[in-house]
Design a protein around this nucleic acid. Structure first.
Lengths: 200, 200
DNA sequence: GTCTATACACCGATAGAC
DNA sequence: GTCTATCGGTGTATAGAC
């Protein structure tokens, strides 16, 4: 039986809307628990229409994660490029504050990037992992330079890099804008701890 | 059509087997992506038999998480009770090494405890959260005592507590027994960083 | 580009035999 | 306590009209 068309936006902005809806739902409930029908409902289209924008559900997840990681890496590199010849300690402070700020600004994307890695197919996983390692390397280079300059004392460079990132990223699991501390105060607290953790 | 019985263990150990299978599968693929049929297949029973042991799928997840958190808390308290009158620095070292050891020994349970909180119903979530806060308090008490004694300098006690736990728990995301570092070496590296992060 | 409709598979949970 | 069988629902993805 043929039915009259009941809705449908024919909008050229459907693509971004799908991405936004998927990001919000994936972060809230998890990739596996969200259906294409739920994403479509949030956008205001039927489920079949989503396949004009993504070959499948998993590719939608991958696009979100890749965009997030590329944004993270390029934002970091842009900030690093703007500064030249600063000491290792200032570079570390810049990295720590950047990391906190960037992550607190994007709670949904951050959550997905950390929780949904196992839902990527192998080639997609590899691409995300490459981006993650490149970002990690940014911090590793700072720590390495600080050790060479005698500013830092670090037992194992790789472990220290991951430890600092884990500590900083942890802020996303508890920070709330309506809590007792402002973002600037949180940045300060973490920066002091990071600084001391690699100090002489 | 009635069929002949084809398998079924009638084993009294089915309960533990179900828990083990669920833990392994939930950790690998995520709670929402695992079906009761898959768990049953790994145990060697039919899906319906699982409901002799759990009222529903979500209660199975909760039991795993509660057991893990209770084990974590009681193991920590048992170790703390065995020691009296040690300084804050030694207490912190003990906590750091305990945390790393306990978490590296239970990668599946740890992964589930951190990733699947959102799949708990509200009353179950509250119970797990209470246990998590009690464990966090163990570290907070150590840090607090160290500040009072003048051993530590900490800007914000709550943030520092969460930062140290996040740093230590991070070891589970990369450590591999066949890697370059032994568990003892990893403990040392993290302990040195934790110690300095709260130092004067 | 979106719709309606549907193919085909799988889901959690339950009923009742043994 | 486990089985077989099934209920009612939902899943991803696709086909074809407009």
């Amino acid at each position: 039986m043929r039915m009259a068309r009941t809705q449908g936006s024919h909008s050229s902005s459907t693509g971004p809307k799908i991405r936004a809806a998927a990001q919000s739902l994936f972060a809230q409930r998890g990739f596996a628990a969200v259906s294409m029908r739920q994403i479509a409902a949030q956008v205001g289209v039927q489920a079949g229409a989503l396949y004009n924008y993504t070959p499948d559900k998993q590719a939608l997840l991958f696009d979100l994660m890749r965009q997030h990681m590329e944004e993270l890496l390029s934002a970091r590199r842009a900030e690093a490029l703007a500064i030249v010849n600063e000491g290792a300690s200032h570079a570390l402070e810049r990295f720590a504050r950047f990391h906190i700020r960037f992550h607190l600004d994007r709670p949904d994307a951050v959550f997905i990037a950390y929780m949904e890695l196992r839902n990527l197919t192998e080639p997609h996983f590899e691409q995300i992992e490459t981006l993650r390692r490149a970002y990690e390397q940014e911090l590793k280079d700072i720590l390495s330079a600080g050790v060479k300059a005698g500013d830092f004392v670090i037992t194992d460079l790789g472990v220290a890099t991951r430890a600092v990132i884990a500590m900083l990223t942890g802020v996303t699991t508890w920070y709330n804008d309506s809590g007792a501390l402002s973002r600037a105060e949180v940045e300060d607290v973490y920066w002091h701890m990071v600084r001391k953790s690699v100090a002489r």
